[in-house]
Computed example of a mutant assay.
Amino acid sequence: MAGLNVSLAFFFLVVGVCQVLRRISKRFLSPGAYGCLARELAGSLQLCMSCLELRMLLEVGPWGGGFGPDVVLTLLFLLFVLHGASFDGASANPTVSLQEFLLESSFSATIAKLLAQGAGMGMGWAVTKLYWSWELTHFHLIQNLMASECSSSIHTSLHHAAFVEGTCSFLFHLVLLKLQQSHPMYRVPALAMTVTLLTYIAGPFTGAFFNPALATAATFHCSGSSFWDYVQVYWLGPLAGMLAALLLYQGNIPRLFQKNLLYSQKSKYKIPKARVAAAHAEGDEARQKRKGEKSNTEPHA
């Protein structure tokens, strides 16, 4: 239990440091630079360090600490609630940034977000490795012994793994699109619950990352799968899932297809039937009047 307490202190420290980084950046940077760079950098750093520590607890905890996956899943839900409340609008997820680009974001802002996410994930991986090297708990000692021979998170066939990651991404983005206009009080716990359920179901097959940057930092360096295998599962799978969710929700993929491919275009305003009938009656009366005027103007024999 002492090792779990150290991990809990680590989570709070990471969130606190990243929150200080966000406040300082918001004060000294322009809104555009803060939104595209500092906010995404801090969010990616926070997400990567938290998820790496959680992943360590999931792998070592059952036999090194005597607690099961239920503890890790509970922590995952609480952490994603905390992330949603503290991220200040950052996604820390390349597929979310690409979705924003397809909807409304500019190309330069999207590139800046992707670079910041990559830098944040890389920094998070390096700092977490340094933290583990201090071996503050027996969990970290075991993790350091395992780190040199870490294995791939893909525990199924390649096509099935890509399908699993794509399906997770599809469901996550569908919920995200559905709740994008909702109040944070409802949106944050709903997204946290979605991530927790998807991790519980898909975790044994692929680790359930459905975040290309996080997967790159967490598992690309492990042996057991080639780089191209990782790309197919953890990059192309989530990207395809995001596009499918956007297509289902919007009926098209903006910037790629202007025409609605799934749903017929309906008028935003409904006209009452009585008003429609009155308009038809007025039209018939006007036609009759014009016909009468035409017959009166015709020359008589």
Rank of each mutant, 00 (worst) to 15 (best):
L145S: 14
A277P: 06
G3I: 09
S133G: 07
E293R: 10
M49D: 01
P62A: 14
L145Q: 15
H140K: 06
G292M: 10
I154R: 01
R187I: 04
A215G: 04
A208I: 07
A202V: 08
V276C: 10
K113P: 01
L103E: 01
V6N: 02
S97Y: 03
D229K: 00
E53Q: 10
Q250V: 08
G68E: 13
D70Y: 15
T194C: 15
A38G: 03
A215N: 02
L78A: 09
G237D: 02
S133A: 11
G64F: 10
H300N: 09
G224A: 05
Q250T: 09
A2I: 12
F257I: 09
E40P: 00
M49W: 00
P94T: 08
V15C: 05
R187G: 02
L8G: 02
Y263C: 08
M185W: 10
H183G: 07
P238E: 06
L198V: 02
H138I: 13
Y249D: 14
Q288G: 03
S151H: 11
H183C: 09
K270Y: 11
L4G: 02
R23S: 12
A277W: 13
L29G: 05
S7N: 00
Q19I: 03
G35L: 08
A202Q: 03
A162M: 12
C36P: 03
V175F: 11
T216C: 14
G224S: 05
S50T: 05
T219W: 00
T297D: 15
S108T: 10
E100T: 08
G61K: 01
L176W: 03
S106M: 06
V71H: 08
A119F: 15
Y234W: 06
S97P: 04
L262R: 13
V188I: 15
E165Y: 09
S7M: 04
G65D: 12
A85I: 04
V60P: 01
E100D: 14
K259V: 15
E149V: 09
A85H: 06
S153K: 08
T74P: 04
E282A: 11
D229N: 08
G237A: 09
T194Q: 05
K273S: 11
A218C: 12
L136V: 05
S295V: 11
T156P: 02
F210T: 00
W132R: 14
M1H: 13
F107V: 03
M1S: 12
A85R: 07
P299V: 03
P62N: 10
C48I: 05
P238L: 06
D284A: 10
F10N: 00
L78M: 15
R187N: 05
L236E: 01
P69N: 13
G89Q: 01
L29S: 04
R23K: 14
L246C: 09
V231P: 03
S86G: 07
A162E: 01
G61A: 09
Y234S: 04
W125K: 14
A126C: 12
K129W: 09
A218G: 06
P189S: 11
W228P: 00
G61P: 05
L247I: 12
